[in-house]
Design a protein around this nucleic acid. Structure first.
Length: 537
RNA sequence: CGGGACGUGGCGCAGUCUGGUAGCGCACUCGCUUUGGGAGCGAGGGGUCGCCAGUUCGAAUCUGGCCGUCCCGACCA
């Protein structure tokens, strides 16, 4: 397990030299049956199931996103959309189906996606005589339609119509949509056949302007990931072998999961003039010359939710950063089916109202009074597994004392292995609630950042050292920062192949990078930049 | 797409080898007791055993095909 870590499952062993032997600490009874340490992949599946985020749909690689998972996505959408709009980008919607001929115009692009495209070839079904329906041979489409795996081509066709003059530039568009990629191996949220995302597409007069937009989007993602998802990332440029098909340069944000693997959490591409050429996106310059546009594209997807799970989850389930929690505080009344219940509910409702009037992280607090029938303890553990940032339990004693019982999801256990309840006055809690949520947001971020930095090795100077670090017996190794000479072509292919033997990939070259002095680990030549290598999702 | 494992009430599983009344735990419903830190006891409800064929008097069980899931690999903005 990457260290340092969240709440500890292993606690100090009682010291025998003390005169009075402390009572043995009972093991924590975690809400999940599988720990991260025992089997990270199984743990990940269990979090998704137990937090009721998503489930199998019966369609290969496609998932049903349930209210808690979708609620998180809606929060991501809303907060990201604010940033996109603030940058002057307008939302549009483009068709799900793309004529194959559009796609075929950009050679590298079609090569990159050909093996994973869903294709529509017929528009009608017909009875086959045995009670089943089959595509009607009479109804074959003249030109197959592909289900969009990404929309550069169809948006490019629109841009070609929309851009005539230098006055039309820059053209800044975005769409929130679903896309389909027929992946060989799927994983909930991380790689599904269908996924939800936003894709920004922009056209510019020249390279500089397009590159500025590419890097603006990347910085938007980096800031979003840190400030909203509490997920630290490294923003940088992908090596040429990892470029988006058809791109001139691809940039990414890379996050470290708790098993040490890297997750590409967002990408931004400078597409040069290739797509503009394929789609005919040209403008007349001030000088009257017909000129090709430079285009960009950038996106983040529901994969971010997988990143949040693997960044913040613990052995009791998910921990949702307050900024993206559909609800930030759950109030659980402890009812006893007697005449005292009405007073408890009144007390809870008034508390809910007072909290909902507050502002935290720049928005009104999202508070849920969980009045559903059922046992308070069961509701509590259900919210723990979902990762509700703060859980309040209100019983008759709290009502008469003017108190609340508070659980902070990010600090669930006390030293003695018991659930950490804090009883405080209602008024004190209301006064502190907003700051408390902001503190949870910050502390989840700091915990993730500390873990990431503790798991990046910077002192490996040769390939043997690299092989040792990623040896068979190493449990969840992190990343390695290396110096290299940025080889290209076949020389790069050799490097990639050598890394592949260790199941490693080059993640990116960090953007903010000072002077580099040293020797390339792969070629022995003077190094020109830093790279991160890691195992990845 | 290759190798492996798997698919049986909502969830987790046994039963399959050796064909013969569909089982268990949790969850759910009802009742009683309990009641501030993941309650106990009792009584119930719920399943065309992934789908389609085949063998058979009889299939969860045997055979074939298909669909889906997980792990490893290949592939993968």
């Amino acid at each position: 397990m990457c260290a340092p870590d969240g709440p500890r499952e292993e606690r100090p062993v009682p010291r025998s030299h003390r005169t009075r032997t402390p009572p043995p600490v009972p093991p924590i009874r975690h809400a999940l049956s599988i720990t991260r340490d025992a089997d990270f992949a199984q743990w990940y599946q269990e979090v998704i199931t137990e937090a009721e985020m998503a489930e199998e749909s019966g369609v290969r690689g496609c998932m049903v996103i349930k209210p808690w998972g979708y609620g998180i996505w809606e929060r991501i959408q809303r907060t990201m959309d604010d940033r996109i709009k603030a940058a002057g980008v307008d939302n549009c919607y483009f068709p799900l189906f793309i004529p194959l001929s559009y796609f075929a115009k950009e050679a590298e692009h079609v090569d990159g996606f050909a093996k994973e495209m869903a294709v529509v070839t017929h528009h009608r079904l017909i009875a086959d005589g045995t009670g089943s329906l089959v595509p009607d041979p009479e109804a074959e489409l003249e030109e197959p339609l592909i289900v969009r795996p990404t929309s550069e081509t169809v948006i490019g066709a629109a841009m070609a119509r929309w851009v005539q003059s230098w006055r039309d530039l820059p053209l800044l568009t975005n769409q929130w949509a679903n896309v389909v990629r027929w992946e060989m191996r799927t994983r909930m949220f991380l790689r599904t056949s269908e996924f939800l995302w936003q894709e920004g597409h922009t056209a510019h007069a020249d390279r500089d302007d397009a590159m500025t937009e590419t890097l603006r989007a990347l910085e938007m993602y980096r800031e979003f990931s840190h400030d909203v998802l509490a997920m630290p990332v490294i923003a940088g440029e992908k090596p040429e072998n990892e470029r988006f098909p058809g791109a001139v340069a691809t940039y990414s944000i890379e996050a470290m999961m708790q098993d040490g693997k890297a997750l590409q959490a967002g990408t931004s591409h400078y597409l040069g003039t290739g797509f503009a050429e394929a789609a005919g996106i040209t403008y007349q310059s001030r000088e009257g010359e017909e000129t090709l546009c430079h285009t960009t594209s950038w996106g983040v997807s529901t994969r971010l939710i997988g990143g949040v799970i693997m960044t913040h989850g613990d052995d009791d389930g998910l921990r949702v950063p307050p900024a993206i929690a559909p609800h930030q505080i759950a109030i659980i009344p402890m009812l006893r089916d007697d005449e005292g219940d009405a007073a408890i509910l009144d007390y809870c409702e008034e508390l809910r109202r007072d909290l909902a009037g507050l502002t935290a992280l720049g928005e009104p607090l999202r508070v849920l009074l969980d009045k559903r029938e059922g046992k308070a303890t069961q509701k509590r553990w259900a919210w723990v597994k979902k990762g509700m940032p703060i859980i309040l339990e209100i019983g008759a004693r709290d009502v008469s004392g003017g108190n609340v019982s508070v659980i902070r999801r990010d600090r669930l256990w006390r030293e003695d292995g018991k659930t950490d309840f804090t009883v405080m006055t209602r008024d004190a809690f209301v006064a502190a609630a907003a700051a408390e949520l902001e503190d949870i947001q910050r502390s989840l971020h700091d915990e993730a950042l500390a873990r990431r930095d503790a798991n990046i090795r910077r002192d490996i100077a040769d390939l043997d050292g690299l092989a040792a670090f990623y040896g068979e017996d190493v449990h969840y190794p992190g990343w390695v920062e290396l110096l290299w000479a940025r080889p290209t072509g076949t020389e790069l292919e050799e490097v990639v192949a050598r890394l592949k033997d260790l199941k490693l990939t080059i993640r990116n070259t960090p953007l903010v990078d000072g002077q580099v002095e040293g020797t390339c680990v792969f070629t022995g030549r003077p190094a020109v930049e830093r790279i991160y290598v890691a195992r990845s999702y």
